[in-house]
Design a protein around this nucleic acid. Structure first.
Length: 581
DNA sequence: ATCGTAGGCGCC
DNA sequence: AAAGGGCGCCTACGAT
């Protein structure tokens, strides 16, 4: 149906701005919508109808998962208000391996064991099949048919609409559950923010990070030499790199440098005793024998060769963009993750990240975000006062009457669960100066040790209640049990901060995304506390200003206390490496 | 052959 | 008493 007719029908249903309208897009098939229990479908050539409906009505778009947001991203249809069923379920239930089927089962209270899988149809009770509606996405037992969830079914505009109707029901059930939580307003806000962040991830995945491919190749040439033409040549180059380490050994030994046990044994024969062969440890014995220095140099080059070498370029760089998969809340605490090295690009490689012609990057990173978040979520008034300073650690140092370095180490240690001998003294001072913040962390650690699930302030569930290891249960293994409990304590202590910081960051990012769009600017990288925005250079200063203003908007929207100050360093650059780090 | 784990290192 | 959190991705290696 034409767009105008669709809009009229939605209006006739009295669909208002912000109201849920579910959407499924299969670019080659079309799109299916559902609103207020009614279904609509539109053919493939009118997929851009979505944009017109968004302009005319401004609904909150509901979809199952990233497949629809990826379609929107590749079509260049920007949407602000959305609801991603899977993203919201990850928030509510913790973990990240949720499929559409398992999410539906969880929402509906169906047992996870009975989820049907593809290829299992023959095993099903035939009596059940008899009264099954073959056109429904649901089986008689209420589970989603695997062929629907896998998109292996022959999608039609009609089935897309049915699929949307089911997403609408899922979203309604999720909403009801969120409204039933301790802080319904915050819970709903987080669901909205997490959904928008998931859409942003689809856009990041679709757009890619601007990168100067020739510069990448130059950097590789410099550090690991030319590209091998054949597998044989690759082996030779590799052996030559190894040789520069092995030739220093007397007598000559055939050590596999990639096997840390062999390296450790080799060092032992040179009277160099190390617990492991990690770089920071080898650093301390660099002077003991020339081979140590050579080994450290070898490791660095090997890292580039294996992970960021020519194969990496071939696989992930094309048309001036580095592309990887983005996940809006992978991992346990809900931070974003990215593949293809987007989150761990070596600093040597960063000069290659370059803005397009007549464009610039606005780079911004949140300053001391984790302690500021700790102040916000714990509500510690003294610690909140410290956030007024540009340098929070300087204020803490003055209060504790210790050096800034010690103060910083102590604060970080409290949040990570580390208290080195050096900072133990400062930690006691921390406890008396900022008792509320420290108690907040102590309570989180206690929950961790006792396997009690936690929630971040936004309501993300942090699972601690999993099954215990056999080693912990076996009697007489108290040490192992204690070590594991301590590890859970550190994990929980960190997760409530890291997770809350991730929530704040995402709010900031989606505010930036929305604000800078009219300038033709887009976010091209999210890095835990850092944003890279690609913008026409004539708008660079305006973009930078918006990024700064977005901090206050995000803080206003997210922070439980209006007095916590968040700061960011913002600069306009053309290469990522130009920014201070 | 395929899988999961460990050691290692890049980034935050 | 001592105790650093998260992720992705590489290689080696043992289990299946």
């Amino acid at each position: 149906m034409p767009a105008s007719e669709l809009i009229d029908q939605l209006r006739a249903l009295d669909v208002q701005g912000g109201e849920h309208v579910a959407l499924t897009i299969e670019p080659s098939v079309g799109l299916g919508l559902a609103a207020r229990g009614r279904m609509f479908h539109v053919d493939a050539d009118l997929v851009s109808t979505v944009r017109l409906v968004d302009d005319a009505i401004g609904p909150r778009w509901v979809w199952w998962d990233k497949s629809t947001s990826l379609a929107l991203a590749s079509l260049g249809i920007p949407i602000d208000r959305c609801w991603d069923v899977i993203a919201v379920h990850r928030l509510l239930s913790g973990g990240w391996r949720w499929s559409i089927q398992s999410t539906w089962a969880s929402i509906k209270g169906l047992s996870a064991e009975s989820i049907p899988q593809l290829g299992q149809m023959d095993l099903l009770d035939t009596a059940q099949d008899a009264d099954a509606d073959p056109d429904s996405p649901l089986q008689p037992d209420g589970h989603i048919r695997p062929e629907w969830a896998d998109s292996t079914w022959a999608a039609s505009p009609t089935s897309l609409a049915q699929w949307s109707l089911l997403a609408l029901e899922a979203a309604a059930l999720q909403t009801a559950r969120l409204l039933d939580s301790e802080d319904p307003t915050r819970a709903l806000s987080t669901a909205h923010a997490e959904s928008a962040a998931a859409l942003l991830c689809a856009e990041l995945e679709s757009n890619g990070l601007p990168i100067d491919e020739q510069r990448v190749l130059d950097i590789l040439q410099e550090s690991i030499g030319p590209r091998a033409a054949t597998v044989r040549e690759e082996d030779i180059l590799r052996a030559e790199r190894d040789e520069r380490v092995l030739e220093l050994l007397e007598p000559r030994q055939e050590i596999n440098l990639r096997n840390s046990a062999e390296v450790k044994a080799m060092l032992r024969r040179l009277d160099i005793d190390v617990a492991d062969t990690r770089a920071w440890r080898l650093e301390q014995v660099r002077e003991a024998h020339p081979v140590v220095d050579a080994l450290l140099t070898w490791r660095k080059a090997e890292r580039i060769a294996s992970t960021y070498g020519y194969r990496w370029v071939d696989e992930h760089v094309s048309e001036g963009r580095l592309r990887g998969e983005w996940s809006s809340a992978d991992g346990s605490a809900g931070r974003m993750t990215a593949s293809a090295g987007l989150h761990n690009l070596p600093s040597d490689m960063r000069p290659a990240v370059r803005s397009d012609h007549e464009h610039a990057f606005v780079r911004a990173d949140l300053g001391q975000i984790e302690p500021r978040v700790l102040a916000a979520v714990s509500g510690d008034s003294a610690f909140i006062r410290a956030t007024r300073r540009d340098d929070l650690y300087a204020e803490v140092a003055e209060q504790l009457r210790v050096s800034r370095d010690v103060a910083k180490l102590a604060v970080l240690g409290a949040m990570y669960g580390a208290t080195t001998g050096e900072s133990a003294h400062a930690l006691r001072r921390l406890e008396s100066t900022y008792p509320v913040a420290m108690e907040f962390l102590a309570q989180a650690a206690k929950s961790g040790r006792e396997r009690v699930d936690l929630r971040t302030i936004g309501g993300r569930r942090i699972r601690l209640s999993g099954p215990s290891d056999d080693s912990e249960r076996s009697p007489g293994n108290l040490d192992a049990a204690q070590t594991a409990a301590a590890s859970r304590g550190r994990y929980a202590r960190n997760a409530v901060i890291q997770g809350a910081a991730a929530e704040f960051f995402k709010v900031w990012a989606i505010v930036v995304r929305r604000r800078v769009r009219p300038l033709g600017a887009t976010i091209v990288l999210c890095l835990h506390d850092e944003l890279l925005v690609h913008t026409p250079h004539v708008h660079a200063d305006r973009t930078a200003q918006m990024v700064r203003e977005a901090i206050d908007e995000a803080a206003h929207f997210w922070s439980p206390s209006a007095d916590v100050r968040f700061v960011a360093d913002v600069s306009v650059i053309n290469r990522w490496s130009e920014a201070k780090n």
